[in-house]
């Protein structure tokens, strides 16, 4: 396996680490944190994958994913804040 292959595998394992936080997270905010973690791992994995294939159109996927990840985590955080105080 090349160095980049191992980097991809490492990102996969780290994303699973983020998923573990989602599963065992006591509070709902831990789960939201785990989601943010996983999305940043996936973005790095996409960038490494684009570097391996040397295709720059894959990076648009990473840009859009980063946008969606950010917006969704902020909106969910705002939603949780209102719902739990009621």
């Amino acid at each position: 396996m090349t160095f980049m292959g191992w980097a991809l595998i490492a990102m996969g394992v780290l994303a699973v680490g983020g998923a573990v936080r989602i599963v065992i997270g006591p509070t709902v905010w831990d789960r939201l944190l785990g989601m943010g973690l996983i999305s940043s791992k996936i973005i790095v994995a996409i960038v490494i994958f684009a570097h391996i294939l040397d295709r720059s159109f894959l990076l648009d996927v990473a840009i859009i994913y980063s946008l969606l990840g950010f917006i969704s985590s902020v909106l969910i955080a705002r939603f949780i804040e209102r719902r739990s105080t009621s």
Partner: peptide, 16 residues
Amino acid sequence: TAPMSTHAIAHSAYIA
């Protein structure tokens, strides 16, 4: 955006 999203999470946890 990374600091912003973690801030939103911590802020929502504190407010709730």
